[in-house]
Structure formats: C-alpha cells, structure tokens
Nucleic acid binder design. Structure first.
Ligand code: ZN
Ligand code: ZN
Ligand code: ZN
Ligand code: ZN
Lengths: 141, 141
DNA sequence: CTTACAAGCTACAGTCGGTAGAGGTTCAAG
DNA sequence: CTTGAACCTCTACCGACTGTAGCTTGTAAG
C-alpha cells in the first residue's frame, strides 16, 4: 500500500494533482486508513502512470478518460482508440502549422529592425499594422 | 465616437473581451454617455488593434502591456521591445520543438498499430509504457 | 509513552485569456 | 411613444492544475 506522496513521486506527479484526478473521476476513490489518509495499490500506480504519459503526449483529460474506458474492453476493436490518437495528431499538426507562421513573422520583424529608437522600431510597426505581415494568423495564441 | 459594439467589430474582438481588457488595465477607462454607456475615440481603436494583433502573434497580455508602455517613449532605444519579441520567438520555437516530438511519437504509434483488438493496440501499449517512446516529452501539454 | 515533525487532510482562491448568462437599463429609429 | 437592439454590471465557468491556510495523522526517536 502506497501513500499519496509515494504514488506521486513514483509517477512524477504533484500530490495535489493526484487528488485533483480523483476529484474529476479519473482515479477511483482509494482505501483510507482509520485516520482518513489515502492508501493506493499497484493498479492505481499503473492508471496514474498511464494518465501522466498521455498528458505528456498532449491528450486532454477528456480524451484520457475515453482511452481508459476503452482499455477496459480488451476484446473490442481498437478503432476508437486509434481515432482518438489520430485526432490528437491532427491537433498537434494544426498547432505546429500556426506556430511556424508565427515564428516566420517574428523572425522577419526582428530581422528588419535596425535597433534604433522606439519611434523607428520595426517590431512595433508590424504590431500596429497587420498589413505588414505576410501570413494570416487566425485565432488565439 | 464609437460604441463598444462598433469598436469590437472593427477590431475583430468580442464586446466582453473589450470590457475585460479595460478591467485588467490594458485599455483606459473611456468616456461615458449620460446613461453610462462607453464611447471610444480613434486612439482606443488603434490601441485595441495593437493588442489584438499582438495576441494573434502569441504575445501574452503582460508582454503586450510592456510593449504598449514602451511605445509611449518614442525617443528611447527599442532594445526592450526587441528583447520582448525575441523572448516570444524563443517561446514559439520551444513549443514547436516539443510539438514536433509529439507528432513523431503519435505518428509512430499509429503506424505500428495493426488496428486489431484493444488488447493488442499499439497505441495503448505505448501509453502504458514510456519506454516504448523514442523521445522525452518533458512537461505539460 | 511522549514528543516532534513530516506528511497527510479539506476547502478554497488563483492562474491565463477570455466566454456565457442573468437580469436590468439606455439609445435611436420609426 | 413605443419597440427592440445594444448596452450595462455582476457572477460563474472553461482546462488543468497549483498554492495556501489551518488542521489532523502517522511514525520514529528519545
Ligand atoms: Zn526594434
Ligand atoms: Zn499580422
Ligand atoms: Zn490500435
Ligand atoms: Zn513517452
């Protein structure tokens, strides 16, 4: 039986985060000592390691919830699993595309700035006027 | 004099967002009609357009606040401006690097999956065991 | 057996950058 | 004068945690 601190350390998680995952239903409510402290077993360790690894790969908690549900049915086709992973891949690719456009614009405006006064700063000029940009940069950060 | 709705429309912003920017001190408190409605001038239009464009390029509101402050001193050197933009560029590059590693792992695990049962799904196998990965993928999403 | 203290507990606030809704008021056109 | 879109304030919510305050529990040494 593991304490929450040991479980957290073994999976590279913060203690509060473990409690948070329990709160949102990703981890089951564990056994408690008489005094009310949580005690975990190996299945909790595996489950939490899975969650953390999926998070590192960018899956949302909602997607992870689905993946965990699916992995409880070993005989089913894995097409839903692969669909979720494929969706995640697409999201990553969209973000890369956007960020590469941003990199280009930022590199360009910095390269064009003479480093003189604020009044002449090319960076500020571009920020004031999107017409000075080469790309659209649609929504959000 | 512009209403908040017109100002929002001209800058591609939501009305609530304009009020939010005022609340966090990025936009000055505008004049009001007798009835208490906000009325904006052209300087507000310029300032909001600047904010929105900088957001599209991924700058944080905190960075934008600094940029706006700096642009009020036209005679100063623009080195602080360029430093902020350079920092933003670095951040974008870090994110791209991380996302490219994720893309690689996701592509690989999807490519290795035979699409058979959940019990054999390569995607789930990899998620269960980071040792099956080629890269580290450090922190967070 | 007592004491000390690390580690646990709950509950709540804050992060970032907005977004949505409730419930009420004002403006401008007809 | 009436209508109704647009405005107002206030509050709560999103994701995925993180941090703090103020207690309580578990454990090991003396
Ligand atoms: Zn410059
Ligand atoms: Zn632009
Ligand atoms: Zn599969
Ligand atoms: Zn991995």
């Amino acid at each position: 039986m593991l304490t929450i601190g040991t479980l957290a350390k073994r999976t590279g998680t913060k203690v509060q985060t473990v409690r948070y995952y329990e709160q949102v239903g990703l981890l089951p409510e564990p056994d408690r000592t008489e005094g009310g402290q949580r005690r975990y077993g190996d299945s909790d360790l595996d489950r939490l390691a899975f969650i953390r690894h999926a998070r590192q790969l960018g899956f949302t908690l909602e997607a992870i919830r689905e993946l965990l549900d699916l992995s409880d049915n070993p005989n089913r086709s894995c097409e839903d699993v692969d669909r979720i992973a494929h969706h995640q891949l697409k999201e990553v690719e969209v973000r890369i595309t956007r960020l590469e456009a941003l990199r280009k614009e930022l590199t360009r405006m910095l390269g064009e700035c003479s480093g003189d006064t604020v009044a002449d700063c090319r960076v500020l000029e571009v920020l004031r006027d999107h017409a000075a940009c080469l790309t659209d940069h649609g929504q959000g950060a």
